[in-house]
Amino acid sequence: MTYEEKIGTERFDAMVADFFANRYFDRGMRKWQGYYLSDHTAALKKQSKSEALVYPPLPLQDQAVIRAILLQAYAEGQTVTAQLNLQTPSGQMLPPIRGKVGGLTDSDVVNIADQNMAIGSIRHIELIPFAASTHQKNTPD
Rank of each mutant, 00 (worst) to 15 (best):
138 N>G: 04
23 R>A: 01
59 P>Y: 04
118 A>G: 10
72 Q>S: 08
83 Q>M: 07
100 K>W: 03
92 Q>I: 04
37 L>C: 13
103 G>C: 11
16 V>T: 03
105 T>W: 09
30 R>L: 14
112 I>K: 05
139 T>M: 09
14 A>I: 02
29 M>H: 05
40 H>A: 08
120 G>S: 05
76 E>K: 15
70 L>D: 02
98 R>A: 10
62 D>A: 12
109 V>N: 07
9 T>P: 02
104 L>T: 15
46 K>I: 12
39 D>K: 13
114 D>F: 12
129 P>W: 07
135 H>N: 09
69 I>Q: 01
100 K>A: 11
75 A>D: 08
73 A>P: 00
124 H>R: 03
43 A>V: 04
87 Q>S: 10
18 D>T: 00
88 T>R: 02
59 P>S: 13
11 R>N: 02
11 R>E: 08
72 Q>I: 03
66 I>K: 02
96 P>K: 08
122 I>Y: 01
67 R>G: 01
115 Q>T: 07
63 Q>I: 15
33 Q>L: 15
17 A>S: 11
111 N>P: 00
57 P>N: 12
124 H>C: 07
135 H>Y: 07
39 D>C: 08
117 M>Y: 08
46 K>T: 11
35 Y>T: 10
25 F>D: 02
63 Q>W: 08
86 L>T: 12
10 E>N: 14
48 S>Q: 12
114 D>R: 08
135 H>R: 11
106 D>R: 13
56 P>V: 15
110 V>H: 09
131 A>G: 02
4 E>N: 05
101 V>I: 10
51 E>D: 12
99 G>P: 06
7 I>T: 02
77 G>V: 11
29 M>W: 03
125 I>L: 00
71 L>Y: 04
13 D>N: 09
46 K>V: 10
40 H>K: 03
126 E>G: 02
5 E>F: 03
32 W>M: 14
117 M>E: 02
106 D>W: 15
28 G>N: 05
52 A>P: 02
117 M>V: 07
99 G>T: 09
124 H>G: 00
64 A>Y: 11
95 P>Y: 10
85 N>E: 04
107 S>E: 05
31 K>I: 03
137 K>E: 11
64 A>K: 13
63 Q>G: 04
81 T>K: 07
96 P>W: 09
19 F>Y: 12
35 Y>L: 15
15 M>L: 06
41 T>R: 07
14 A>N: 05
63 Q>V: 15
101 V>F: 03
90 S>Q: 10
131 A>E: 00
